[in-house]
Computed example of a mutant assay.
Amino acid sequence: MKNILLITSCVALMAACTQEADVVLPAYESQLVVECYLEAGQPPRLILSESASFFADATPFPLVSGASVLLSYAGQTDTLVNELFTDPITGRAYNYGSNRPLPSDPQGDFTLTAVDPQGRRIEAITRFMPVVPITSLAPTFNEEAEAFCLTTFADPPEQTNFYLLVLNEGQAYTPSLLSTTLDDNFANDQGNIVFGSGFNFAEGDTIVGTVYHLEPTHYRFISSAQNAQAANFNPFAVSGEIVTNVQGGLGIVAALAYDRQTVVVPAPPQ
């Protein structure tokens, strides 16, 4: 009874101390937002939009039209035109792009600049990391004949490396069953990184494994975006700023260097 009275008193005291206050927020200034992933041998595509206030309607960021978008690399500059581009394989759509494919063996810096009709300017620089090949993509069964997948690849020595490991079922662009960032701390004594999935697979499933070798800025962008997303569902989390490599705006411009392998889950051992 004493505990009940004490709790009741505390609640009443907190209620008495609660006051409403009007907080005047400064006017929000929108920024350009770019999302661009370059692939060797593929034409460049990107989405250019602008940010919106946290308290704005829950709608996609408004697309930006009429901007001058340039991609410079290897002593040349390509103009990305403001048109609708769609990828029939991934189903993704973009509002700027070019039909000229990038080199199959890209070298050096790739610099993206964009200036919109309001005079806002953004710039980002990226480069392709060396591809890190997958040495093994191995479905493994437990005693209940449930299958998980062990992905193995060699971590290049004498440098700090960052990765994104993605496992899909069926095709590479279906919703991922595993998507996790890794670094050198996951390497074992032999210099290999071995990472296991959950028990997501069964006999006959097709597993598509992809290992992306990330630039440090791309790794920090993914990690900070994941932390910011998690903070939205945790009232006690400290909201963090998303790390970007875009000067003058938000988003990410990244060159994708990856290896991809496919394996079909065999019958479980008898």
Score class of each variant (00 low, 15 high):
N200E: 15
P139E: 07
P156I: 04
V64E: 01
Q42G: 01
I4Q: 15
P103I: 01
Q118N: 10
Y212P: 00
S98Q: 04
T8L: 09
F61Q: 01
I207P: 04
S49I: 03
G196C: 10
Y37K: 00
A172N: 06
A202D: 08
L32M: 07
F201S: 02
D116E: 02
V23W: 10
E203S: 08
T18G: 04
A225M: 10
N161P: 03
V208E: 05
N3T: 15
L6F: 08
Y173H: 12
A145T: 13
P268F: 11
P26G: 03
T59N: 11
T86E: 13
G66E: 02
P269V: 07
Q19W: 15
R92E: 10
Q229F: 14
Q247G: 07
V253A: 02
F195Y: 14
L13T: 12
L150C: 13
P106Y: 06
L177K: 10
K2T: 10
L5C: 10
A74S: 13
D87G: 04
Q229K: 08
T206V: 09
A74K: 07
V24I: 15
A257D: 01
V132C: 08
V33M: 08
N192P: 12
S53L: 06
T151R: 05
F148G: 05
A231D: 09
Y163P: 01
V208F: 08
G249N: 01
E143V: 09
V265M: 12
S176I: 04
Q19V: 13
E144N: 11
S68Q: 10
L70G: 02
Q190N: 11
Y163R: 02
S53P: 03
